[in-house]
Design a protein around this nucleic acid. Sequence first.
DNA 1: TTGTACCTAGGTATAACTACCTAGTCAAGT
DNA 2: ACTTGACTAGGTAGTTATACCTAGGTACAA
Lengths: 215, 215
Amino acid sequence: MSNLTQPPILVQIVDDHPMVQGGLKACLSFYDDIVIVGSTDDGSDALNKAIELKPDVILMDISMPTMNGIDATEIITEQLPETKVLILSMHSNPEFVKSAIQAGAVGYLLKDTTSEEIYYAIKAVANGKTHFSSSIAKLLLDNPVNTNESEKLTTREQVVLSYLAKGKTSKEIAKILNISFRTVEAHRRNMKTKLGIHSLAKLISYAVKHGIIKN
Amino acid sequence: MSNLTQPPILVQIVDDHPMVQGGLKACLSFYDDIVIVGSTDDGSDALNKAIELKPDVILMDISMPTMNGIDATEIITEQLPETKVLILSMHSNPEFVKSAIQAGAVGYLLKDTTSEEIYYAIKAVANGKTHFSSSIAKLLLDNPVNTNESEKLTTREQVVLSYLAKGKTSKEIAKILNISFRTVEAHRRNMKTKLGIHSLAKLISYAVKHGIIKN
DNA sequence: TTGTACCTAGGTATAACTACCTAGTCAAGT
DNA sequence: ACTTGACTAGGTAGTTATACCTAGGTACAA
């Protein structure tokens, strides 16, 4: 299992179960393109370690003593945008998954995952992709998560956007919402400005990709 | 494992390996909301059996003696639109997966899948959803498959559509493709007509949802 | 050879969107 | 009390899209 044409991926482990830490280290030591550069057992320690070690990927548990993995993920992804956080949790609770993604996690694995899949997931997120366990992916299909991006839009803007994606014109939307069509146009303009988009088409692309549109 | 509030799901197995047939029957007999109503060892027999038995779900192998599973899937999904075909294959070859989906399969499982996942997948497709093994889903993320829907569009139309989704105007696209902007408008008009769509916004929604747009 | 589908291109008129600008009200938080 | 953000609304001008219409060339199959 070698891939020496690429520099190794630096991985930091954050998990309060010593057995999980040990198991992960043992499993991943098998792959020589991955190096475990540090492990901590709490979210608050994780940030300091991460700033020091600048890992490529952090394998993050959610339930931990003082600072949970979601909060830690939010801080780390903000402070170290280069570092990818991959959640490794026992729980497939939709709320946990949603929170993790909104906090900036780019993957979510369940702890019954095989070491091969963990290896694959680390490689994937290190390369800027995302990776979710199949049951999580299924869950996400049913309940698309509003990412941070889509939260930039206000409620009213999202309403207008959803009608736009259905092919309604400003005039039609104005009638539906009982407001002036100039207001609808103002919402459109504001959305485009805040998202850095200059056309309806790209706005719709954006909306569909980020799950703002329900149907 | 019972769910007697719902009628059982009728499942037909199409696989030329007796061991696989036996194994599937044994695994699935554990769940009393699934009934194996028949099994055949070739695609050509499968169609006749399917017309006779009207199963809810067909577990279909790909490699089979006279008629392969892809062709059988295409015929069955056309003749029996109510019947969902779930591919169960050893191969994760992207071409196989692509062909299967284009033939109308609504799921693709690898044969190393657990019986729990097969059970889940059967339930999912019977309820009108789709289900793919995680490695297949990963593959689909990287290589989105043009479904039958998107194949309604010609190559040129898809090119125009992809530029539209990037926010380009007809005039800009015309310049890029070295054609008249009236031609670009003609393509837009034709796409909308053949898809029954009356606005750019809805066209973009359609494109993104059906994976015509790459990025 | 006679369709049929596809790509191409134009005329004309209307409808819609976009880019600039200003500006009031209201609620929430500092 | 002050600011900030959200929602509202309008003026003006220019650009773009849409809805009708027609029509030639080419390739491929019935």
